[in-house]
Each structure stands twice: as C-alpha cells, then as structure tokens.
Nucleic acid binder design. Structure first.
Lengths: 214, 214
DNA sequence: ATAGGATGTTACTGACCGGTAACACACTTC
DNA sequence: GAAGTGTGTTACCGGTCAGTAACATCCTAT
C-alpha cells in the first residue's frame, strides 16, 4: 500500500518480514480512520494496531492532522488508479467507460467492510474546522468531476455541465447511502439503471461513437 | 423549535423571556451538533451555549447519547413537516410535488449555515458503533424513501422502485456535496435539471395526470 | 407563608486526548 | 569497534471528556 524502503543492500526487497514502521503506521491509520472515523480514532489506537509506539508515530508524522492528510491522499491515489484501470478496458467508448465506472461502484459497495467514501466521510467529520485535509478533499472532488466530464464530453453529451453534475450526485449519493440506509435497503442497487436513463436521454440510446445528435 | 411548556397559568405563552432549560439545552445541542458534528461537541459546550450547567443537562437527559437521539428526532420531525407543507401546494399533481421538493432542497442548500443533512452526517460520524441514534436514522431514511415512492406511484412511474432509488441517490448526493465540494462548486445546482430528465423519461413529458403510458 | 420543584454552583472522578522528554536497544556500515 | 540511524520503553504534560455528589437558590402553586 505504501512503498518506500530503505537501502537494505542485498536482501530481496519483497517478503521482508516487517515493513518499516512508517508504512505500518499509515496502514493502521488507514484501516482505523476508514472503519471508525477520524475523530473516533486516537493515536494510541493507531500505534497499538501498528504494533509500535507513539514516539515512532511522531518521528514519522508531524501530527495527527498530517497523518490524516496522508491517509486521504493515499486513498485518492488508489481511487484514481482504479478508475484508470477500469476505463482502460473500454478504449474509445466513453459511454462504456462510464457504465463500467458506475458498475464498479456498486460492486465495491457490496463488500463487507465498505464504509462509503473516505474523503466524503472526512468532509463530514471535519466540517466547521480549518483542517488541512479539507483542501485535499476539495481537490480530489474537482478531479473526479473532471474525470466524469471528460467522458461525457467525448460522448457528445448535450448538456455537458448539467449532466456531469447529475452523475456526480448519483455517485455521491451511492457512497453515502451505504451508511445512512440499513444494510438490506441500499438504494444504489439501481444506480446503473438510473445512469442508463440519463445517458439514453442525453447521449441518444446508441453507443456514443454513433450519434453526434440524438 | 421545541414546544413543551409548563402550566404557567395566566401568562400569555408566547414571549416568555426564558424557555425552560430543557428546551434551551435541546436547541443549543441542535445548533452545535449540526454545525460542528456530534463527536466534536462536548456537553460543556452545549451547557455553555444554553446558558446553564451540566447538572441541568443530566437532570433532563439520561446521557449525551439520549440527547443526540432527541436532536435527530426533532430534525426529522421538522423535515417531514416541511415536506408536507410543500406538497400541499400541489394537490393532485405528484410530479409538481416532486419538483417542488427538489427545488426546496436546492434553495435550502444555498443558505449560509447549511451543513448537509443532520441524519446523514450523524450516520457518518456514528458508523462502526451501536449508537441508539442509528435506528432513528434508518427509520427516517425509510420514511423519506416511501414519501418519494408514493409520489412516483401516483404519477404512474414505469420502473417504480428503480426510479425511487435514483431520486433518493440524487437527494442524498445533493446534501452530501455541500460538505465535500468547495462552496462555489456545488453540483446540486443542476439537481432540478437531472430530475426532469428522469421524470420525462419515466413518466412521459406531460404532467402526470395525463399519461398512464408514455 | 410555605412547600416543592426546577435550576444554579462548585468541586470532583476516572478516563482519554494529542504530544513530548529522556534514555535504552538493535542493526548496519564503515 | 565506533558512529549513525531506526526503533522501543517509560513516564510524563496539560487539557478535555462524560458523568456525579452535595448543597444553595429561585420560582411558582397552594
């Protein structure tokens, strides 16, 4: 998950028994922050989960806030890498890319330990503060919007900005409702169906490469 | 905001200088929980804002958890009362009701102190716990879904459950994005436009009372 | 006037919070 | 073997957390 390694000369760098303490700390923080929330997880819990101690944490991170920032940056990096992988399967087919992105959202939402979007959750938990992670969140959101917008533009969407916003709202809603609805009542099961209605109306019902007009 | 009052005999019950301490506490908690988050607000801050003391809080509420439950119940009560007012302006016009509900969402989102949905925020903050407020949240969500579904059913929606979920996702996304997007980039500005695309596709473009088939 | 209930005041508990100081140990590299 | 670096251990700081005890005061209904 986090990759830095010291110059341990001749040792084969995979399968080292214990990763560096910094990586263990970031992994533990990632797990705990995501499952329980930033405000509910103290540094003691993190160092315990990482099998180390508080001093090692503060030798590697300036503060808990800094740790939160790096947690969110790491998750965003993963997120966009995953998106890049998904769209790579549909070269030149922006509508197929969008449907695959949405499909992967639903699939990931079904996983047991899924607790919504790390950035969105953090935005809720950190509202009303000047936490440095807020800028990371806003930047990630803008990037995600651009990502969707680029696909819609390539698909000749009629009302580009409005449709982009509509799709963003669907995605955000799909993430959030994993937490605010009971587990057996997740409304995002129909995320794909709603997406298709919107794309059919705004792109025309045929694959994107065909229709410049509906 | 909270209505109970003691039998103060002949006094005109409006314009009493100081409401009962219980109401002041609940109002203060409502304000602080909503603006800063449940986990960031301590009981000391609440009693200070209410102009009272901790003993009065614990004489009126069993615990902070209980206070959180009553905070959310009160907000939900307000919420559905507002919805009832809105739909009352469009009798027999379920599509008009839905558009008015969504319109009011956008308008409320523009208010300065708007911090998303109290229940959704609480769901994020309380995830991974057994907090008693979670049941309140789930019940409110189910009720909101039924509210939307009833209107869509009255409007003869084609794919009733799927469309209901789609609209729910839009609403939830609209709430959440007030916190996760920068203030000048709120994607819910186009909430109404997206709603109309979906309704046009699933109800037919004419007002609902006309078309049983599209 | 008085009784009872609602409210205020002060002080306290035990636990946890983020963060730090001082020191000891292990390991690699030269 | 010496130096340097990464890591572990223990104890501690001041502050805040939710919650309580004991006592004082005010208001209102009778």
């Amino acid at each position: 998950m986090s990759g830095a390694q010291t110059p341990t000369s001749g040792v084969p760098e995979e399968q080292q028994a214990k990763p560096r303490v910094r990586d263990r700390l970031l992994d533990a923080a990632t797990e705990l922050f995501y499952q329980q929330g930033i405000n509910c997880v103290g540094v003691d819990a993190i160092v315990c989960e990482a099998g180390t101690n508080k001093m090692s944490l503060y030798r590697n991170f300036a503060s808990k806030d800094e740790l939160v920032v790096q947690y969110l940056e790491g998750r965003q990096q993963e997120h966009f890498a995953r998106w890049d992988e998904i769209v790579a399967d549909y070269p030149g087919d922006p509508r197929g890319q969008l449907e695959a992105l949405f499909q992967s959202f639903v699939e990931r939402g079904h996983e047991r330990a899924h607790c919504g979007c790390p950035s969105a959750n953090a935005a809720v938990e950190l509202r009303g503060t000047n936490h440095p992670a807020l800028e990371v969140i806003y930047a990630g959101r803008a990037r995600a919007r651009q990502y969707i917008r680029d696909r819609l533009e390539a698909a000749d969407a009629k009302n580009l900005e409005a449709l982009t916003d509509g799709l963003i709202l669907l995605l955000e809603g799909a993430m959030l409702t994993r937490l605010s609805y009971a587990e057996n009542a997740w409304p995002a099961e129909n995320l794909l169906a709603t997406l298709k209605i919107l794309l059919d109306a705004e792109l025309g019902p045929r694959p994107a490469k065909r229709g410049k007009r509906a």
